[in-house]
Design a protein around this nucleic acid. Structure first.
Lengths: 192, 192
DNA sequence: CAATTTATATGCGCCAGTCATATATATGAC
DNA sequence: GTCATATATATGACTGGCGCATATAAATTG
């Protein structure tokens, strides 16, 4: 029956279009917000986005190795070493020998580094707050569980958890049950 | 009454925490999605993210000048010129003299450039589709208007509209009433 | 205890992008 | 019409971030 085929095609066409639309919306919103965060952080005048990310990551997980940091930032070993070199020269980060692994160097923020990390987190929050305050209470209430789902499904292991939270204020997020950490724990429980 | 003060403080404290939480959620989700888009595009092996963005931008707005592109990518003039140099050398973009402005060079994709742009848009869609398919119909239905609001409030003029949509498949988005374009038009109507 | 893996470090080099500057066209004042 | 200024593109010189290859030291495994 040709009329049914036509109808099906129309439905299919319409659904595809709707899919395209929500995909475009999500992608555009994500890059827009991510860019505004980067812009806010960029205004602080740090050497690079990775430098800022490293500071926040070290703040959230002090005494972790350069190699752990490298994974979060998706850098090569040497790239991470250079980055730490410069942060150390700027007096923001301290290298220490690990007392559990003689090869590893673990990282800690200096007092200045702590301050910088707070400022970076504040800049990031400014970007999102400008958006959140334009949403209604209902929109925020509805958005929250969806964002939790998105973060849960994009977290497959401890490594992706670290990456997804790499700019987070984890001290504010953790006690409220960060969906990323929960998802990472669930994956660990289920095994690799 | 001290008990009231304490109660108020508690409310305040709790609200602040909740604000921190939604801010962290939104920021983390945005950077996570944006990173996955970048990773998907990065896998294509193009010279840089900006090269990919330029191709999609030129696809969506052919015969625009190098200077217009520069604004979308937040590059200096010379940076944009070098970028176009390399894309032209790779046979993806063509320079033409503008016939309305003797100074301007307008850009157009070659056939290969068109193909590349489609592939880039496909890579971006892969990233978001992997996330959207993990959401329920209700979640998607609720998310849509919130994303539209977010894009509307982050679009202040034509320039931010271009930036926010810089990786969009505008041919799919435009007929469905892209909130970014609508917001840009409204701002233009109200004047600068 | 030898062989392999893992963590950090360094020399070398690339490439994206900026700054300063040059040139051409357009626009506005008079 | 012409002169001053603004705008668009182009190029030389340079830098910073980062990768690749390699070296060394410590840990692990057999």
């Amino acid at each position: 029956m040709p009329s049914i085929d036509l109808y099906d095609s129309l439905i299919y066409f319409t659904l595809m279009k709707k899919d395209d639309y929500i995909n475009n919306l999500l992608a555009a919103a994500a890059t827009t917000i991510a860019t505004q965060i980067e812009d806010q952080i960029g205004d602080l005048g740090l050497p690079s986005t990775n430098a800022a990310t490293a500071l926040v990551t070290i703040r959230n997980h002090p005494d972790d190795s350069i190699d752990a940091l490298r994974r979060v930032l998706s850098l090569t070993h040497s790239g991470a070493v250079r980055l730490i070199d410069s942060l150390e020269q700027d007096g923001l980060v301290e290298r220490r020998r690990s007392d559990t692994d003689g090869r590893a160097v673990v990282l800690r923020l200096t007092a200045n580094g702590q301050d910088s990390a707070e400022v970076i987190i504040g800049a990031r929050e400014r970007a999102t707050r400008a958006i959140v305050k334009r949403l209604s209470k209902q929109q925020i209430a509805g958005l929250k569980p969806v964002l939790e789902t998105i973060l849960a499904v994009t977290t497959k292991d401890e490594e992706s958890a670290r990456r997804n939270c790499r700019l987070c204020d984890e001290s504010a997020c953790r006690p409220l049950g960060c969906p990323v950490e929960i998802s990472a724990q669930e994956h660990r429980a289920k095994g690799p």
